Simulated scan of single mutants.
Amino acid sequence: MPKQLALGLTLPESTSLESYLPAANQQAVADLAACARGSGEPFIYLWGATQTGKSHLLQAATQLADQVGRSALYIPLDQATQLSPAIFDDLEQMDLICLDGVELIAGQADWEQGVFGLFNRLRERDKSLLVAARCSPLNLPIRLPDLLSRLSWGLCYQLQPLNDQDKIQALSTAAAGRGLALSDETARYILRHTQRDMGSLRQLLRQLDQASLEAKRGLTITFIKTFLEHQTDPQAGGL
């Protein structure tokens, strides 16, 4: 659809509910899936710190809705605000709209009015809306009282970050999906010696996958230690 093309969005194929480890967020994921399918609560507000998977879940919901024959659109407001609130025009024709980063339009009267109008039009037509932000509705610096009230409706979930055991499980699952064997001991080594957020860990796993393929070696602690040393000092020698 034209508006989707205007935003230049391409959702990664790997972004799915199956590739998201819910851990303590199981109920939020279940209700989000029901919303995407059109069988659950039509409005859900997700909030949490960075790297808790807000964008992943909204993108996954968009793809799930499409898979079951519902029209859906994912709008990351960090990109959309480079355009104008006119991007919301006629979106009530869609079955599901996912707005990511709603805190980014706070204090901008035209954008706040645009989201407010979209919310009302979707509700009038019994369509679904998923919203994500870094803070709860109560802490949003939205100036339009009616919009702030609307964003407090429906279900609201604070996404909880993964603990270390959850991250080990996520790494092992992601490695298995690439045909790699990753022991818990090796996963713990990675957590102790690299950045611990899931975005960085997934990026490292992609790099290790390529490096192990080229070196024809498995993901042992020795191999990973050498790889990390090489990343820090390219003159450290081969893998």
Rank of each mutant, 00 (worst) to 15 (best):
L77M: 11
L17R: 00
A211G: 14
L64Q: 14
C156I: 14
F119G: 04
A236W: 11
S16P: 05
L11P: 05
E229Q: 13
L129Q: 02
P12W: 13
S136E: 15
Q210M: 11
L219E: 00
G101E: 01
D166P: 06
A109I: 08
L77T: 08
S16T: 15
L201G: 03
Q231S: 04
Q26D: 13
T62R: 00
A61V: 10
D89E: 15
Y189R: 07
D90A: 09
M1Y: 03
S55M: 07
P2Y: 04
G101W: 01
A132H: 02
A23K: 12
I224R: 03
R70P: 08
Y20E: 11
W153K: 05
G237C: 07
S128T: 11
A28V: 11
D31E: 14
Q165G: 03
L99D: 04
L83E: 12
R123W: 07
D197H: 12
C156K: 14
Q67T: 11
A109F: 10
Q51W: 00
Q82K: 13
E18I: 02
A36G: 09
A181I: 11
G8S: 09
Q26F: 08
Q203W: 04
A30T: 12
G117E: 12
E214W: 01
A6P: 02
T10F: 02
L83M: 10
L77N: 11
N25I: 13
D126A: 13
S183G: 13
L204P: 03
M94E: 09
S71N: 11
